[in-house]
Amino acid sequence: MGDHTYLTEHLYSTFPPLRDAGGYTLAKSDRGKRLIKIPVPPLGYSIQFLRHEVDIKRAPLYIIPLQRGLTLNTPIEEVCPVMERCLNCDKDFPLFELQGHLHLCQKNEKHCLERSPECPEEGTKSDDDEDLATAIILSLQETETSSCQSAEVQIEE
């Protein structure tokens, strides 16, 4: 049994840019899929008015901004990927990159075991190139990870 203020605040909380529209009107579609504007009563739209006077029960309502057009595009937020720790090297990686990392990580571990227990830095040119490529990939992944670690995630019920 919400009045116009209740209905409007609910709409604003659901779609905040509507606050800057300079008012709104409502419309519904008819069976021919045309929009029919719902006239604004003197006390504004209320849930009781929409249910009983306009006979809106399950039909969708369309919100039409009055004074200013609104964009429906929402800004893209930086989303931090789900992280998982590699059991071989004990570093965190985005889950979607972990399988590729495991291949490199296990290959490097196997390569180290084939050389010597100390795994010296000396090796062939191709080994050095692989080590450099792996180091660059790991460095880039750590940079991406560190920029997302401070983000807070809130889950609303």
Rank of each mutant, 00 (worst) to 15 (best):
F15P: 02
H103L: 15
L70C: 05
T124V: 02
E109K: 15
E118M: 09
I56T: 01
T25C: 11
D129V: 11
D90S: 11
L18G: 04
P17D: 01
P81K: 03
A27Q: 03
P39K: 00
D3T: 04
D55S: 07
T14G: 06
L18W: 02
K107T: 15
C80Y: 04
H10E: 10
L113C: 07
M1S: 14
Q99S: 15
L140K: 12
T124M: 01
R19A: 08
D131I: 10
E77R: 10
Y6K: 10
I47L: 12
C112E: 13
H52K: 09
R31K: 11
T74I: 09
L138A: 15
A59T: 06
L113A: 13
A133S: 12
C119E: 01
R51N: 06
R85C: 12
T134P: 02
Q48G: 08
I36D: 02
L11W: 01
E78K: 11
K91T: 06
I38P: 00
Q141L: 13
P41L: 00
T134C: 10
Y6L: 11
Y62F: 13
D92W: 09
E9M: 12
N108S: 14
E53W: 00
E114P: 01
H111K: 15
L87V: 14
T143M: 08
T5N: 08
G2Q: 08
K37Q: 14
L102R: 14
D20R: 08
G23N: 03
T71W: 06
V54N: 02
P81Q: 03
K33I: 05
P17N: 01
L18H: 02
R31E: 13
P75K: 04
C112D: 12
I47K: 06
P94S: 05
F96Y: 15
T74F: 11
L61R: 01
F96H: 15
L72S: 10
K57S: 12
E109C: 06
E144R: 14
D129N: 13
S46C: 00
D131N: 15
C86T: 04
P75H: 02
S126W: 06
C80V: 08
V40C: 09
I136T: 06
I137K: 12
Y12V: 03
L72P: 02
G123T: 01
D3F: 05
R34W: 06
T143N: 09
L35K: 08
L140G: 11
G123D: 03
P16Q: 03
E142Q: 14
L66F: 06
L98C: 00
R68L: 07
L102F: 09
P65S: 02
D129T: 09
K125H: 07
R51A: 13
E144I: 10
S139M: 09
D92L: 13
E118I: 11
S116L: 05
E144L: 13
R115S: 11
N108W: 06
E114L: 08
P60N: 05
L70K: 05
F15A: 04
K57E: 08
T124Q: 04
L7G: 03
G100E: 12
E97G: 04
